[in-house]
Nucleic acid binder design. Structure first.
Lengths: 205, 205
DNA sequence: ACTTTTGTTGACCATTCGGTTAAACTATAT
DNA sequence: ATATAGTTTAACCGAATGGTCAACAAAAGT
């Protein structure tokens, strides 16, 4: 059969629907029926295309992860100066999360649900974050005396935390700080500047 | 009947078991059977003491939340100097999370699952975080010129993020940074000093 | 035209899970 | 002795949900 014509192929419709549902509800929260509805087909057909929920889930997430994490690793492992590296990391990460606001929550969710399976199967060996070079770079800068004495580990944690956490805790942030959707988006946009500035102010001599 | 003697009362056993199961698996993940097993009783008795899952859940979480959040609010709203306030906040918060490592994840989980119900019912009106005074204090310090010009909102976000995120993303942190349980605990203990230092270095003039 | 392959459907099945009910047993209080 | 509250056992209900199946429809191959 050839098909693949005017409207999206059924497979494509399923993937789009599944992505939407998985991203918002997580693996366990997602219902096969919801995905079928979202794709405008029936449940049996879902299983016809993707044997079961796990297979479908894997398909979705792998696609997403294998696009994003390599980009982050490239930044971590590149040879650019520390401050610029921090700026690029924050910029890239927040850009991604502005486009896929549910991604970080989704990742954490899956990690908590089944750490072994998720971290191995989905991050495989290539996608796994590799902060080693970044940590060494910080240590070198400290030794050169170009920045204050600071623990590379804590600096990395601070960087990750400030970048990712607001997206993970978004409903809490919005509620407790009185932000609507648009304002939240704007604040996150500001953070692309604010976070690097905050960090650099803290560690520069 | 009087009983209430040697071993814990059944009610107490249930509450302890429920707490453990809810904290690790969240509301939806928790099974009534698991809770019964954990308490060493059977499912019927569970429903005899607590009408249904929701009631039991509320009982557990309210107890936990109403102990902790008022303490945090007291710090935010107290009259102590900014830098000291930051130190106390971090110290108190990390202490709590060292004792209840699953609490932050648990809170986020429930917020995502059902924001309206959770935020209202559980935080009620008294437990709700009230960062207003803290934000104003930052603004005053900026105006007085005692700290650098910084957005109070972003500073608060940074503070919360750096303090809470590592606990929320714990499995990821441990795996990607190669920390075992003990090392993680030690690193978090260091953060009680590191975070305030990092912030103060960034904003002091 | 026919057969085979691929796509699609609705009905159905098995399991899980929260919750109920009824009957029996136990220990205490009166 | 009897009533009462606590506890167990076991069967059961109903809804939700992942997954299967047989039959039908549409293409594609011949």
């Amino acid at each position: 059969m050839v098909k693949k014509s005017i409207d999206l192929s059924t497979e494509e419709k399923i993937l789009q629907g599944a992505r939407k549902v998985f991203m918002t509800k997580g693996m366990t929260g997602a219902r096969m029926q919801d995905i079928a509805d979202e794709a405008g087909i029936n449940k049996s057909l879902l299983h016809y295309y993707f044997r079961d929920k796990d297979k479908l889930f894997e398909m979705i997430f792998l696609k997403e992860a294998q696009k994003f994490f390599p980009r982050i690793n490239m930044i971590f492992e590149s040879g650019i100066p520390l401050f610029e590296k921090i700026q690029r990391f924050v910029h890239e990460y927040i850009d991604e999360m502005q486009q896929n606001p549910y991604l970080p929550w989704f990742v954490l969710n899956e990690i908590h649900r089944d750490p072994e399976n998720f971290l191995y199967k989905v991050w495989g060996k290539d996608n796994l974050p590799r902060p080693q070079k970044f940590l060494e770079q910080i240590e070198q800068e400290v030794k050169k005396g170009t920045i204050k004495r600071i623990s590379p580990l804590h600096l990395l944690m601070n960087l990750l935390s400030m970048t990712i956490f607001p997206f993970v805790a978004r409903p809490m942030m919005e509620r407790n700080l009185g932000l609507d959707e648009l304002q939240f988006r704007a604040v996150m946009e500001q953070r692309k500047q604010e976070i690097p500035k905050f960090i650099i102010d803290s560690i520069k001599k």
